[in-house]
Design a protein around this nucleic acid. Structure first.
Lengths: 248, 248
DNA sequence: AGCGCCTCTTGATCTGGGTCAAAGAATTCA
DNA sequence: TGAATTCTTTGACCCAGATCAAGAGGCGCT
C-alpha cells in the first residue's frame, strides 16, 4: 500500500491527453477542461506496488511512461500475470470498488489519474466517453482471450515468440514504424516477469530465448536489447495466423 | 454459417427480459417497448455453429436456454475455449463488426437477439444501458483473467476442480440454493469440451475426474450427473482462496 | 578493488500430463 | 436384436517443461 502520490504535475497535459487512448481523443474544449480539473499525476519506482488485490480503488487513469503489470497470486505463491500496461494503456474499472488483482510497476512509472467519482459523473454526462471505455474494455477482453489460447495451447517456444511479437508490434506501432522493416526494442520485462506472463518457469524462458537466438529468429545484444530481423518469421514461430492483433 | 433463424417467438418476452442480465433490468416501459421491437429469437441444435470467427456479427443477444461456447482455433487444429455462455449470459460486441472467435451451441440453444444497429442507437439514447453493458464486459474481463490463472498455473486436478466449482456455483445461484448445502447438477460439457476449456487432453480430464471421484470430492452417477458433497472441499481442491467469484 | 546482490544462463534429472492404443458404456439406427 | 456411432475410461509409455543446482556477468557500494 506504499503509494507515492506526487500531486506535482510537471508534465504538460497535452502529452498525456494525446497519449492515453482513454478519454481525450473526442473531447471538446469544455470537456477537456473538466478532465483537467480532476486530473493528477502519480509516480512510482520500479518494483513498487501501485495497488494490492482487494484495495479500494478510488481512481482510474492511464500509463504515461513506464510499465506496470496486473498479476494474480495463489496462496502458495504461484503467480500469473493477467495484463501488461504499456504507455497509453488504461487502468481502472468505473463502477467497481475493489481492485481484483495486484498492480505493480515493473519500471519507474508515471500515471495520469482521474478521481473515480468525478470521472464517473462525467461519464454519465458524456456518452462518447462511456462508449470509448466500453470499446477499450472489449479490446482488453479480446486480448485476454487471445492470451488464453497462448496459455492453454501453445508450446514454450511459441509462448515466447508470442510475447516478443506483442511487444515488438506494440513498440512498432508507437513508433509508427513500417511493419515489414526489422524491429528493435528493449525487453521491458525480466525473465521472471515473462515467465509469470506465460505460465512458465524463468529457466524455460531463458532456454527458449537462447534457442530463438541460436536459430536466428531474434538477435540479442546484452540481455534485453532485441532485434527482430523478420516479423513474419517471428509470427510464424508464435503459431499465429498471419496477423491477429493481441495487445494488452 | 448454418444459422437457423426462427423468427417465430413462442416464448413470452417477460421470460427472457427477466433472465438475461443484459439490458432489461432497469428499463422503463417505453424502453422495453423499444427493445421488443428489435427483438427476435434464434434456435440452434446441439453442435451447431452460431457464428464463425471472422463472420460479420449483426446482432447482440443473450442466452435464454442451453449452452454455447466461445472457442479459438489455431491452424493446426489446437483449440482453446475462451468463454462459456450459460443462460442469461450476453453475447456480442456493440461497435464491433467481426466475431473474434467461433460461437458454438453445445446443447440445444435458444437465444434472444437484438439487431445490432438499432440496439446501438438505443444505447446512445439510454446511458444506463451502456453502463450495464460496460459492467457486464468488466465482469467478463475479470472472469477471463481469473481463467488465465487457471490455465497458466494450476495443475490438471485443480483445473478440473475449478471448472466443476464454476458450474456448481453458477448452477446453485440460478436455483437460489443455499451455498453450504450440497450441490447437484448435470455436466453440460463433454470431456472434450472440458479439455478445450482447461488446456488439457480429454484423457487427462477423464483421469482427473475419476481421481476426484475416488477421493470423494465428487459423486458421479452415470457420466454427467454430479453431486458435490462439500463445496468447501471442492474449492480447496481448486486451489481457490476461500471464495472468489469466477463466472463465465 | 573487492564484496554482495541481482539477473540470467546452462546442465542434470525428474515428473505431470501428453500420446497412442484398446476396450467398455450409452445411444441411435436399421 | 444387433450394428454403428459417439462418448468415456483405463493402461502403457514418452517427452516438454519443471525442478534442483551451479556458475556467469553486471552493477552499486564501501
Amino acid at each position: 500500500m506504499s503509494v507515492e502520490l506526487s500531486v506535482a504535475a510537471p508534465r504538460d497535459c497535452g502529452e498525456c491527453q494525446i497519449r492515453h487512448r482513454a478519454v481525450c481523443s473526442r473531447c471538446d474544449e469544455d470537456e477537456l477542461t473538466q478532465l483537467d480539473q480532476i486530473k493528477y499525476y502519480r509516480s512510482f519506482q520500479a518494483g513498487q506496488t501501485v495497488l494490492w488485490s482487494g484495495d479500494q480503488m478510488d481512481f482510474v487513469g492511464s500509463v504515461v511512461t513506464g510499465i506496470a503489470t496486473l498479476t494474480q497470486t495463489m496462496e502458495d505463491g504461484r503467480t500469473q500475470m493477467v495484463g501488461l500496461l504499456l504507455p497509453s494503456d488504461f487502468v481502472g474499472r468505473p463502477g467497481r470498488g475493489e481492485a481484483p488483482y495486484d498492480v505493480v510497476a515493473t519500471t519507474d512509472l508515471v500515471m495520469c489519474c482521474f478521481r473515480k467519482k468525478p470521472f464517473e459523473n462525467m461519464m454519465l454526462r458524456t456518452p462518447h466517453v462511456a462508449q470509448r471505455l466500453l470499446e477499450m474494455t472489449l479490446d482488453e477482453l479480446d486480448a485476454a482471450r487471445e492470451w488464453m489460447l497462448v496459455l492453454g495451447r501453445k508450446t514454450a517456444r511459441e509462448k515466447i515468440a508470442s510475447l516478443l511479437a506483442i511487444i515488438a508490434r506494440r513498440d512498432a506501432t508507437l513508433k509508427l514504424a513500417s511493419l515489414d522493416a526489422k524491429v528493435v526494442f528493449d525487453l521491458p520485462l525480466t525473465r521472471e516477469a515473462m515467465s509469470d506472463y506465460l505460465g512458465l518457469t524463468l529457466e524455460t524462458v531463458s532456454r527458449q530465448i537462447s534457442a530463438l537466438k541460436k536459430d536466428g529468429v531474434i538477435v540479442l545484444e546484452g540481455k534485453r536489447h532485441v532485434t527482430v530481423p523478420s516479423m513474419e518469421r517471428l509470427l510464424e514461430e508464435a503459431g499465429d495466423d498471419s496477423d491477429g492483433g493481441m495487445v494488452s
